[in-house]
Design a protein around this nucleic acid. Structure first.
Length: 478
RNA sequence: GGCGGGGUAGCCAAGUGGUAAGGCAGGGCUCUGCAAAAGCCUCAUCCGUCGGUUCGAUUCCGACCCUCGCCUCCA
């Protein structure tokens, strides 16, 4: 079975075939261009943002696993209304302000073990943005209002045979946009028209660039069109983002990008659009007033690791609304421990042996993931395998070579899941000494002393697990 | 109001026109001097409600109820 993905354009699961099937990447494998709408850096990312980014990471990792050479781009939107407002409030320079949150974002991605690719910044592509607007102007799809702003005309766009509303069914007559239009101070021609270039206003402060239309800054959607096409070309394979971006952001991106008519005949701007669903936290929509608005640092300060957060975020299918809970996070910890213990035992048994990967396991995993990233099914396969392995381990019916083969398979699977090895925790020397002392006490059948030591070690935050290979110290969960 | 998702055990979550994966929690047990966050076993006569199609539906169709999202900044 080949890789299949749900394409928002057709609203169905389609076989994935690269837009340029014969093009190869630098490593000689079939080339795939992937773009994911990145963060607007005005604050720390929250768990909802990270669901989308972990989803994007999964797509990218699975494409790589399936033999594609993936060029992955994720933009950093570092100029936008909210940013400008906060820059004004904080009195800090734009770049100093945005860099703070950009760095935090990068750090969070690292904690979640997300692969990073090219991350262009909007402010470093102002030239591309202006050039794109000029193309739209030349084609008569853009117009200027008295204040010096540039707008995209949906009416003109539709007039030249293009369809607006390909990702969502849009019926303007039924839209409840009335209130907003009335409140809009700009003189755009139609309610749904959107800004390409916003003329500078005094509140923008220093945040402005020169343009053929006067000083201003990019509109809301244009940076993604400009940067994706600048790096991946006018047509590329995959564009991802959260479900809320489908309309109007992605719809407008398509209109701008295809309106500029830079694609070759028969090639769309993007072949596959993938949208990740939102999540609920403790069964409710995230909100600061409900106190269920988690940033990654909120979770790490509660003692959870990125690995646990990642596992939980990947426990449900990306197109289903997911309920993120603290209990779920604790469950993810237990589930991860189950895998880790199994891997540890296999590693010990395999010793120095090496073997080719257990094909049955890898194939079953691949088949699940090929079906529109059915990650829940994939976990089921992994845990079935863990249980069966534990049985064999317990009955000592596994050979070192078989253990090595299983480990090789897990290694492949984990290039997709991205859990990585269990983080090593340094056992304090004093506790190791106590553990040794306890071994001696046990040998002398001084069990009172042995239990006393276990309590002492527990008080220090560690637990002693007696195994055939001697005592094992594990950090207690916070 | 328009459009689009969902409703499967205490919680999270797959799935199929032929009789319900997996994880967590719970229960039982095993190894152990004792333990374990270690391992094994167990845990939905039933898949929102009511009708219909069918030999047979949780899975298809219809109605209804509930819920979430987008339409406005938003992952």
């Amino acid at each position: 079975m080949a890789l299949h993905l749900f394409n928002s354009l057709s609203r169905r699961i389609e076989e994935f075939v690269p837009i340029e099937p014969n093009r190869l990447g630098p490593d000689g494998r079939p080339y795939v261009g992937l773009y994911c709408c990145g963060p607007t850096v005005y604050d720390y990312g929250h768990i909802g943002n990270f669901r989308t980014f972990v989803f994007a990471d999964l797509v990218r990792r699975h494409l790589d696993f399936r033999g594609y050479s993936v060029r992955a781009v994720m933009n950093i939107t570092d100029v936008e209304d909210k940013i400008i407002r906060r820059v004004r409030e904080s009195g800090r320079p734009l770049h100093e302000f945005t860099r703070t949150y950009e760095d935090a974002f990068l750090g969070d991605l690292k904690i979640l073990n997300c692969l990073t690719g090219e991350m262009p910044r909007a402010t470093e592509h102002i030239g591309d943005i202006i050039a794109l607007i000029q193309k739209l102007e030349q084609r008569g799809l853009a117009y200027k209002t008295a204040d010096g702003s540039m707008w995209f005309s949906i009416d003109k766009y539709q007039g030249c045979g293009c369809r607006y509303g390909v990702l969502k069914t849009i019926d303007f007559s039924q839209m409840r946009a009335g209130e907003r239009v009335a409140a809009d101070e700009y003189e755009k021609e139609a309610a749904a028209d959107f800004a390409l270039w916003k003329a500078r206003v005094p509140d923008d402060g220093e945040v402005a660039w020169d343009s053929p239309w006067g000083p201003g800054r990019p509109g809301w959607h244009i940076e993604c069109s400009a940067m994706s096409m600048a790096l991946l070309g006018p047509s590329f394979d995959l564009h991802l983002g959260g479900e809320d971006l489908a309309f109007p952001h992605h719809e407008d991106e398509i209109a701008q990008s295809e309106g500029a008519a830079v694609q070759t005949e028969g090639h769309p701007f993007v072949k596959y659009w993938l949208h990740g669903s939102h999540l609920l936290v403790e069964g409710k929509k995230m909100s600061k007033t409900l106190g269920n608005f988690f940033t990654l640092r909120d979770l790490t300060s509660k003692g959870f690791g990125g690995r646990e957060v990642r596992q939980l975020l990947l426990s449900a299918h990306y197109r289903e609304t997911f309920n993120f809970t603290l209990d779920g996070l604790a469950g993810a910890r237990s589930a991860l421990t189950r895998i880790d213990e199994c891997i540890d035992k296999l590693t010990q048994l395999a010793g120095g042996e090496s073997a080719s990967a257990d094909k049955g396991l890898v194939d079953a995993f691949t088949e699940a993931m090929d079906n529109d990233l059915n990650v829940a099914r994939a976990w089921g396969i992994v845990f079935d395998w863990v249980r069966e392995t534990n049985r064999q381990l317990a009955s000592k019916t596994l050979t070192p070579v078989q253990a090595a083969s299983a480990l090789a398979a897990w290694k492949q699977i984990d290039t997709v899941l991205g859990l990585g090895p269990r983080p090593e925790s340094e056992v304090p020397a004093a506790l190791l000494a106590l553990a040794q002392e306890r071994v001696a006490a046990k040998k002398a059948r001084d069990f009172a002393r042995a239990d006393q030591i276990r309590e002492q070690v527990r008080a220090a935050g560690w637990m002693i697990e007696d195994t055939a290979a001697g005592p094992k110290l594990k950090p207690l969960s916070p």
